[in-house]
Design a protein around this nucleic acid. Structure first.
Length: 551
RNA sequence: GGGCUGGUAGCUCAGUCCGGCAGAGCGUCUGGCUUUUAACCAGAUGGCCGGGGGUUCAAGUCCCUCCCAGCCCGCCA
């Protein structure tokens, strides 16, 4: 169905605060619907692709995604686009870069000169320092595309450079130049340094390729501007101009950001756009006014999102304190990370790798709430039922989750059959679980294992492949042998075995604590570990008895 | 200097729009055999809701103000 709500004005009389939406994306969807937008409804995001794309940038995609899904669920056709603002000038050297395989490298490992010699040019005119893409901008855009793909979000990526090149911005640019007096007036309310000489267009110098700011003449008949390539200030530094005097068409240059953003809204027909708090007080209010006053277009429904921090401090492409989508997905299932973005965008949030188990536990609860397996408030249930289907690839109630920390423990072995049998014997997987359930449940093990290794936390065990070098006393040897016999004879369950370990230690006059440590050394080559009884009971019996006998 | 956003239990977060007993999970503690062991179960513990003031029968929620963090505009460079 298309074109919902057309002119049925009678049904719109209910006030906007009529029913409070539990899930934020539905509140946004309400706002968008209230405007009766043309279909497909267009949701946009975008970034200037200059540094290593990190999880903060993903807000531009994920926040829109949930709104898009909420609208689609209501029967609307929705298109989610993402502009790579790749006509932006390269202003400074990034400290780190990412290869297309997400390897983070320093400038010394790439052709840094490709960047350094081209400061001031549009990102798409800067060579790729990795040499693998047609430009630095293209390289960066490719990383963004991969991020969205990895998150399973279908978006159309639009190159800003491309939009200029094909003339999509031409008429808007013309309008802005025609009405530059008004443009100045508006912008001057937001930016003090806008003076009479300000021209809302930056031509690209035909000689050196820099984006320049000194426009000397505007000819709207021929749709060209004359310029002098003078030095410009960018990113707290001066970028030298070449002094060339030339003429540029409206496709050969770019609008300043404050105008470019509203121009995108108009050209792409944007109905909704989320943006970070950096824009909330700057480009949004000016953009809103520019859009209405200058471009005669209604601006999109806005949404400000708070920034994430990473391990407690600000994410920063330039300083290199980043975590990429690729890294996150090496420790989290995509649905868990998608869940992270269902949380209130207005709240500042830390992505703390050391505490990822909490996030995963939260997700597991979220899933359980959706399927009504645990107690929850009405609100929590409403959010879960609404957002959960947008988070998973498919809603399958039979799915089983192994707790993240236990999954990390299962990572002690690479033997997948052993992982499965340990999960079964420990009660986390029913014996009759279908193949796909087992496979799904165990998929988490690799993630959790990577996490445990990366943070080197208390779940970072490794099953000792071969017999560790340990010396045992005569009484300890006897105790271990006797425990092995017991296991062979009685096949005890975990709790029984736990008890038998205590009993055996005492029977042989060994300190209980010492005996446990001996057990951990034997199997993990560490002095501590998980509850020994259940742990040993979960493993292959012959292996356990053999190891106890120090074979 | 002006403004915007955030600040809720040890941790991660709901609840704030629209005032009605301060919540969840995790952690911690205790118990579950005579037993320290990270995957079990039960119970308990946990809060000046950033501070202060105001409105109200009633404030985490509304108003004012201050503090802290981040950001925007300006100023400076």
């Amino acid at each position: 169905m298309t074109g919902a709500n057309d002119d049925s004005s009678g049904s719109d009389d209910t006030g906007p605060r009529e029913d409070h939406q539990a899930f934020w994306a539905d509140a946004v969807a309400d706002e968008i619907e209230a405007r009766n937008p043309d279909e497909p409804i267009t949701i946009k995001g975008g970034v200037s692709p200059s540094g290593v794309p990190h999880i903060g940038h993903l807000n531009e995609i994920m926040r829109g995604y949930f709104v898009a899904q909420a609208l689609r669920d209501r029967g609307h056709a929705v298109e989610q686009v993402f502009t790579s603002d790749d006509k932006d000038r390269l202003r400074k050297m990034p400290r780190t870069l990412a290869s297309l395989d997400w390897e983070i490298v320093g400038l010394d490992e790439v052709d840094a000169g490709a960047l350094g010699e081209n400061l001031g040019k549009p990102l798409t005119d800067v060579p790729d320092p990795f040499g693998c893409c047609s430009s630095f901008g293209a390289h960066q855009t490719e990383l963004l595309r991969k991020s969205a793909e990895a998150m399973g979000v279908p978006i159309e990526i639009v190159s800003n450079t491309q939009l200029y090149a094909e003339g999509a911005f031409e008429s808007v640019t013309r309008t802005v130049l025609e009405r530059r007096e008004r443009a100045r007036e508006i912008l001057a309310d937001y930016q003090e340094k806008v003076d009479d000489s300000y021209v809302p267009f930056s031509p690209q110098c035909e000689a050196c390729g820099h984006l320049t700011e000194t426009v000397t003449a505007i000819d709207l008949n021929s749709e060209t501007v004359d310029y002098v390539c003078e030095s410009v200030e960018a990113g707290n530094r001066i970028i030298e101009g070449c002094g060339h005097e030339g003429t540029a068409t409206l496709r050969e240059g770019k609008l300043p950001w404050r105008f470019e953003w509203p121009a995108q809204w108009r050209v792409l027909g944007v109905d909704f756009e989320p943006f970070g708090k950096d824009h909330a007080e700057g480009s949004w209010p000016s953009g809103e006014e520019i859009c209405r006053e200058l471009l005669d277009t209604e601006p999109p429904v806005p949404m400000v999102y708070e920034w994430f921090t990473y391990n407690g401090s600000a994410l920063s492409s330039s300083s290199g304190h980043v975590i990429t989508v690729d890294e996150v997905l090496s420790v989290l299932e995509p649905e868990v990370f998608r869940y992270f973005f269902t949380k209130d965008p207005g709240r500042a949030r830390d992505f703390d790798v050391r505490q990822l188990d909490q996030l995963v536990d939260e997700f597991d609860r979220f899933e359980s709430v959706c399927f009504d397996r645990v107690d929850a408030t009405d609100r929590e249930r409403a959010v879960a039922e609404r957002a959960y289907p947008m988070v998973v690839d498919s809603v399958r109630e039979e799915r089983i989750r192994i707790p993240y920390t236990f999954a990390a423990v299962l990572g002690m072995t690479d033997d997948e059959a052993l992982r499965a049998s340990m999960a079964r014997r420990s009660g986390h997987l029913p014996d009759d679980a279908p193949e796909w359930v087992v496979e799904d449940a165990l998929a988490r093990v690799e993630n959790a294992r990577t996490w445990a290794v990366r943070t080197d936390n208390e779940y970072n065990y490794r099953l000792a492949e071969s017999l560790p070098e340990i010396s045992v006393s005569a009484s300890e040897a006897a105790a271990l042998d006797s425990l092995a016999d017991l296991i062979e004879r009685e096949h005890p369950d975990g709790e029984t075995l736990q008890q038998q370990i205590y009993d055996t230690a005492r029977e042989h006059g060994i300190e209980v604590g010492d005996f446990f440590e001996l057990g951990y050394r034997l199997f993990l080559d560490q002095p501590q570990g998980p509850r020994l009884g259940p742990f040993l009971a979960a493993m292959d019996r012959a292996f356990v008895t053999g190891r106890l006998r120090r074979e």
